[in-house]
């Protein structure tokens, strides 16, 4: 099988959410001497770009995005260590701690954003729903997160986002994190007013802003 075919198969494995094929073609890529970073960028990431585009156009839905992210994870488990073994640096991925904030049990919007972030190469720690501000910050500190993301569908949970920014300042760690907020009632103006770094009107925007800010702040 040619290099191009293997890369194509890797992309297809992600698009089809097939973790078996993703694993198989990752091994083939290594055996064929393909640079693992090339396999990641020209195979897996290309597949993920298509998944993101199809989801944005409602050609596929959340379960398919979740399966694609699983396939990507399976392939990365093979390709990443190989890249390091060959003397390359480990892939620098942004770490995101994300949750639906205190008082709110609506999590599907947050789940979509978490999946899209994973699909775009971020390492995501999803703490679930109705998560207290201090729990969110503690987790970010524990894993050395780059980004803290908070979501809510309720206007009465929005003040907890404000509390989160205040608590980060109080603990003297505000500058360590990119703070992103979003959800039904959250507006761009409100996000600015509480001192968040970014806002996403939908999943696509959330990911775009996360990538932009991460690259800007971390120089990646």
């Amino acid at each position: 099988m040619s290099e191009l075919m293997i890369l194509e198969e890797l992309a297809n494995a992600v698009i089809n959410g097939d973790d078996g094929k993703a694993l198989e073609n990752s091994k083939k890529a290594i055996a064929s001497g393909i640079d693992p970073l090339r396999a990641i960028n020209e195979g897996l990431m290309r597949g993920m770009a298509k998944v993101g585009e199809d989801f944005s156009n409602l050609k596929i839905y959340l379960p398919e995005v979740m399966m694609a992210a699983e396939a990507m994870k399976a392939a990365l488990n093979i390709l990443e260590p190989e890249a390091v073994k060959r003397g390359g640096a480990a892939l620098k991925k942004g770490k995101v701690v994300i949750a639906t904030i205190s008082g709110d049990i609506h999590d599907i919007g947050k789940n979509i954003v978490a999946m899209l972030l994973r699909a775009n190469g971020f390492e995501v720690y999803d703490l679930g729903r109705d998560v207290a501000v201090d729990a969110l910050i503690n987790k970010a500190e524990e894993v050395g997160a780059d980004i803290i993301g908070a979501s809510t569908l309720l206007s009465t949970s929005m003040p907890y986002m404000e509390d989160m920014v205040a608590m980060l300042k109080e603990r003297g760690v505000r500058q360590k994190y990119i703070v992103l907020v979003g959800g039904g009632p959250v507006t761009r103006e409100w996000a600015e007013s509480i001192g968040a770094d970014g806002y996403g009107d939908d999943g696509d925007e959330a990911v775009r802003v996360a990538k932009e800010l991460y690259h800007k702040v971390k120089g990646q």
């Binding site: 205190s102 008082g103 709110d104 309720l154 206007s155 009465t156 949970s157 929005m158 003040p159 907890y160 404000e162």
Partner: peptide, 18 residues
């Protein structure tokens, strides 16, 4: 709709202000 603030205080879910 509902109220986001009562008497100048922000309403938080599951608190007395709800």
């Amino acid at each position: 709709g509902g109220l986001a603030m009562v008497e100048g205080r922000k309403v938080r879910t599951k608190t007395p202000l709800e």
